[in-house]
Amino acid sequence: MVTQMSTVTTLPVVDARRPSTLREPQGRPEHRRGATGSGRPQPVERGAPPWVQIVPGTILLAAVGFAGKIAEQSIGAYGRAHQLTLPNIEYVLWAIVFGLIVSNTVGVPAVCRKGVDTYEFWLKVGIVLLGVRFLLGDVVKLGTVSLVCVALELAVAILVMTALGRAFRLPPKLISLLSIGSSICGVSAIIAAKGAIEADDEDASYAIAAILALGAVSLFVFPVIGHAFGMSDQAYGLWVGLAVDNTAEATAAGALFSDTAGRFAVLAKTTRNATIGFVVLGYALHWARARARDAGVGNKAAFLWEKFPKFVLGFVIVSALATAGLFTRGEVADLANVSRWAFLLTFAGVGLRTNVSELARQGWRPLIVGVVGECVIAVITLVMVLAAARAFS
C-alpha cells in the first residue's frame, strides 16, 4: 500500500521529497537496504498482496513499541512501590532504544522490512489525530502578560537554537527539529515536524533524546532554583511552562513546587502546545520553498502545494474541530489514544530504521547544542518571568 501511494508525481525532483520508504539505501547495507534491494530471497513479496507483505513488519513495530510502553509502566510502578522519585522516561524513548538494539544487532528480517516502512504512515495518522489535544482556545485563558511571555519564548528558543546549531555546523534539518522541540512542546512537536520537513530518522532520534534527557534533569533542578529565587507559585509555574519542553515533565516540575504552580505550568505549556500547528506550518512552508528554489521550478505556487505536507492540514482541521467543541471529553480521550498507538508504531519504526554508526558520525555537537541551548533558554525565560512578576506585583 505504501509503495503504491508514494509513487504519485511527475516532477523529476521528486526523489529529494519522496518518503524515506523509497529512498536509496544509506549507511550500513544490512540496516538500510529496502526490501527489494537486499539481493536476498524475498519469499513474502512474490505473489502476496501488498497488505499481506506489511503484516510481519507491522507486528514487529507493535511488539517493539509495546515493549517500550511496558518498560515505562514498569519503571513507574517500581518507583511508586519503593517510594522512589524516578525520572519518567516515556515509552517514546524506550521504543526507539529497543528498535535501535534490534536493528543494530540482529538486524530487521527481510520479511519485516515492508511492514517496518509503514511507520511513516502511522506517524502522519498520529499527527492528524494529535490535533484533538491542542485547543486553540487554551491560548486565551492565560492572560495577556503570560501570552506575551509565551510569544517571546517561542522567538528566543528558535533564535538561540538556530544560532547555536549554525555555530556548531549541524545539519539544517536537525537545527529545525531542535528549534521546534525547544520552542514548543518537545517530542510532539518533533514528531509533527519530522513528517512536515522530511527530516532523517537519525536527526529525529537525536533531537528527541536530547529533549527528553534535559526534561528529566529539569525535574530535579527547577524546583531548587524556584525556591532559591523565592518565586511565587504563578511566576514559577509560568517559568516551568515556558522552559520545560515536554508536557509530562513540565507538569511534574510544576507540581513538585506546589499545586497552584502545577496548574500554571500546565496552562503555559498548553499554550505553547497550541502554537504547534502554526510553527510546524511555517517550517513546512520554509522547507517546501527551499526545495522549490533548489529545483528551479517555474510555477512555485503549484510546486509548493504539491510539496506541502497535506496531513498538516488534517492536523489543523482536527484541532479546529476540537476547539469548536465538536468532541466530548470521552471522544477526545479516545482519539488521543488512537494517536498514541499510532506513535507507538512510529517510534518503534524510527528505532528500527536508525543506524547507530550514522548517529555516532554526528558526534557530540548536537548534544552540546541541545544542552547549551536549553540552559540559555531557561535563563532568558527566568529573567523574563522575574521581570514580568516585578513589573506587575
Binding site: Q4, M5, V8
Partner: peptide, 30 residues
C-alpha cells in the same frame, strides 16, 4: 488517480474520527 501517503493518512485519521464520533468505537485503552 492514486492518493499520496499524506492523503491516505488524512483519510485514515478521518475514518477514526467518524468511528469514534458515531460511537461505533469507544473506550480505547492506553
Amino acid at each position: 488517480m492514486r492518493l499520496s501517503l499524506d492523503w491516505w493518512a488524512v483519510v485514515a485519521a478521518g475514518l477514526a474520527v467518524v468511528l469514534v464520533k458515531s460511537g461505533i468505537v469507544s473506550r480505547i485503552p492506553w
